[in-house]
Design a protein around this nucleic acid. Sequence first.
DNA 1: CGCAACCCCTAT
DNA 2: TTAGATAGGGGTTGCG
Length: 841
Amino acid sequence: MIKGGNPRKRPPPPSSHQPSPASKHQATTPTPPPPSTEEDFVDEDVFFDETLMGEEDVESLILRDFEERQALASRLSKWARPLLSDAHISQSRSIALPSSLAAVLVFQQLEIDYVIGESHKGLLPDSSGQAAIIRIFGVTGEGHSVCCLVHGFEPYFYISRPPGMGPDDISHFHQTLEGRMKEMNRNSKVPKFVRRIELVHKRSIMYYQQQKSQPFLKIVVALPTMVATCRGILDRGIQIDGLGMKSFITYESNVLFALRFMIDCNIVGGNWIEIPAGKYKKTAKNMSYCQLEFDCLYSDLISHAPEGEFSKMAPFRILSFDIECAGRKGHFPEPSHDPVIQVANLVTLQGEEQPFIRNVMTLKSCSPIVGVDVMSFDTEKEVLLAWREFIREVDPDIIIGYNICKFDLPYLIERAQTLGIAEFPILGRIRNSRFLVELRVTFLVYILVIDAGLFYRQYGTRESKEVTVEGRVQFDLLQAMQRDYKLSSYSLNSVSAHFLSEQKEDVHHSIISDLQNGNAETRRRLAVYCLKGGNARGIGEWILLWASNPSLVEVYLLSEDAYLPQRLLDKLMYVYNYVEMARVTGVPISFLLSRGQSIKVLSQLLRKSKQKNLVIPNVKQAGSEQGTFEGATVLEAKAGFYEKPIATLDFASLYPSIMMAYNLCYCTLVTPEDVRKLNLPPECVNRTPSGETFVKPELQKGILPEILEELLSARKRAKADLKEAKDPLEKAVLDGRQLALKVSANSVYGFTGATVGQLPCLEISSSVTSYGRQMIEHTKKLVEDKFTVLGGYEHNAEVIYGDTDSVMVQFGVSDVEAAMNLGREAAEHISGTFTKVRLLL
DNA sequence: CGCAACCCCTAT
DNA sequence: TTAGATAGGGGTTGCG
C-alpha cells in the first residue's frame, strides 16, 4: 500500500509558474526523470509550491521511516476497499487479452472535472498537442473506486453568422481569428487555437421568432480557457473582409467546461455511467489512487437516466473526521504555533447505519477505548502522516465534518507546512498532485453617495481559505446547516440538540419495561438506547474520569465530534437530498455545495435548449444602470387579537403556476417592435398587467413553462410514489427528490429576475409579479364579496393579512371545523375563477 | 421632534 | 471571481 503511494517521483513543475528552485533539486538528481504520462497531466488550477517539495527530504524520509511505515501500513490495510474481482484484474492487466473478455464497466459518478494533458494518441490518432481531459470519479456497485479519463470532448461556443458569409469567408474569418488568438497567447504550445468553425443552424432563445432557424457558427477551440479569450476578441470586434470591424454577441460561451461535457453527453450529477466492454483501456500509468483507472472516448460513454435500477446509490465511503489542537491559553489555535494532538475518524458505507471504522490518532499514549482503534504516536509528524496514509488506504468518496472546510483541513495543511512535511498534503486521488490552499481575497465595494453625483468607493477585503481535495466531495455540515436552515446558533452542540434531540426522547422511560418484555428486536432497541445513555455522563462522572486519565476524556469527547456530523448527515438525509438535487438539476454535487442557485437553472435551461436547437446568448452586464422591478403586494395587516379561527388560503407554487399559465419565457416574449410589425392576432398573445406581450403556446411553447411542468409533474409522481413506498431507503430517495423538485421550480423565477445573473429577463419577472399582485387583489375581493351576510353567510368575512401568495381570512365563525369548511369552499370558488391557471399541488 | 438614509432582519 | 428577487418593519444616526 505504501508502495502504491510512493511519492519518489518528483511532480512536474508546471511550465506556467515555477521559478528556479527546480534547478537546485536537479543538482542532487543528475538524471532528470524520464518523460512519463504523469508529467503530461498538469492541472490548470493547481500550482505546486516548490518550497514544499524538497525531494531530498522525501527520499531519505522514506528510507528512514520505512519499517515504521510498513507496520503502520499493515495496520491500516484492513480498511482498504474490497479487492478487485478476477474480471477486473484480468481486464486491468489485459492489453493482450481480446477485448471481448473485458467486462462492462458501470459506476456512479460523484465528481467531474478536467485537466490539461497531452492528447491521447491511441484513442485520438488524428490529434496532437494539449487537450482537455475530463476526469470522472465514482464508485461501482461493488464499492470499487473509479477514475475515468475521457478524451476527445472539445470546448466550443457559437456566434451568429453574419449575413452573406460564405464558406470562403468563413475560412478567412477562421484565419483572422486564429491570428488574433496567437497574439493573445504568444507562449502557448498549442499548434492550433481555433480547431475549426462549423456552420450550424440554430435559433436564439431570446424573443419570439417566426423563423425556425438561422445560420450560426460553432467555434471549436483547443482548450477550455480559450473560449473566454476568443469571446473577448469577438466582443471587442474583429476585422472581417467586406464587413469592416464587427463585434459579435457570443452564445453559450460562459458554460463551464465540465458542465458543457455533462450536458452534451446527457450526464446529470450523481448518475450511473456505463462504458461498454472493449471501449476502455487501462491507463498506461496510473495518475490516480483509484482502483480502476482507464481512458475512453467521450462518444463511447453511456449515461443512464436516474430511474429504476439506476436510481440506486453506490456504497460510497463517507469519512467523518475531527481534529483537536492544543491552543495556548486564551488564544485560538494557530497552525504556526499550536500542534495537532488528535484526529478522530469514522468511516461509514452509504446506506449502512453504523460506521465500520472508528479510530483515533493521538499524540502521545492513550488508553484503549472499547470499539475504537486507538493509534498513538510520539511525534506530531507521525500523526499527520498516519492520517494521510489512512486517507489513501480508506480512499473515501465523501469527506464530512463540522467546519472542516474553514478550519480542520486548512489547519492540517498549514500545520504540515510549518513542520516541513512535504509529503503530507496529498489527500486527493491524484498522484503527485499537491493539495491546494487557495487564498481568496474578496473585494467588497461600498459606494457612498455624498451629495448628488459624488461617489466614494471604499474597498474592504475578506480572506478565505479553501483546500481542494481532488476526486473527493467535501461536505461541511456547518456550511450545509447555514445554507439550509435558519437557526439562532450554529455550534455543533446546539445544532445537534436541535436535530438529534428527539432521538433521546425516542424511547420514553414509561415504555422501557414494554420493550424489555417484547421480543429480541424491541430489546435491541432498548439496548441501543442504553448505550446512548451510557455516553451521556453527568459532569461529576466526567471529572472523576478526567482525574484518572485525562486523555481518555478527550478521546470520548472527540469521537462524539466526529460522530455527530455523521448522524446529522443521516438524520437530514443529506446524501439522498443532494444527489437527488444534482440529478434533477443536472449539475455535479460539488456545484450544489459551493455555488449559488442560478447555475442549477442555467443547467436545466441549457439542456432543454439543446433539445430544441436553441442557443443562449451571453448578454453583457451593461453599465451600472440595471433596471429594477416591482415585487409582490403585501396586504395591510389588520392588527388585533383574533380569538376566532383564521383560515389561510395559499396558492400552491404561485410563481411557477403563473409562468406556466401565461407561457412566460425568453422565447415567447415579443419585442415592442415586433408587436407593431408582426401584427399577431390578439387571441394568440397574452398581454401581461405590466404591459409585456407573450405569445400563447399554440405559436411557440415556452421552455421555462416546460421545465416547470416537468419539475412539478415529477414532483407529483415522487409524492405519489412516496406514499406507496415501503422500504425506508426508497422513501428517503423519493422524499429527497420531491423536495429537490420543489426548490428547483421555485428558483426559476428568481433566475429571470437576477439582474447580475446569466440571463436576466425583467420582462418575465415583472410580468410574474404583476400577475401575482392581480391575483392577490382578486382573491381578497372575491372572498370579501362572496362571504357576506347579504350573500347568505352568518358573518362578513374579513381579510386580515396577505403577502405574495397567501391571504388570511377571518370568516367570523368561532369553531375550527366551520372555518375549515368555509376556507375549503373559498379555495374552490377562487380556483374556479382562475380556470386558466392550473394550480398544481 | 420629524425626516431621510441606512443597516439588519424577516416574509414570501 | 462571484452572484435568485422585492417588500416592509424596526432601529440608529445625523440634521434642522
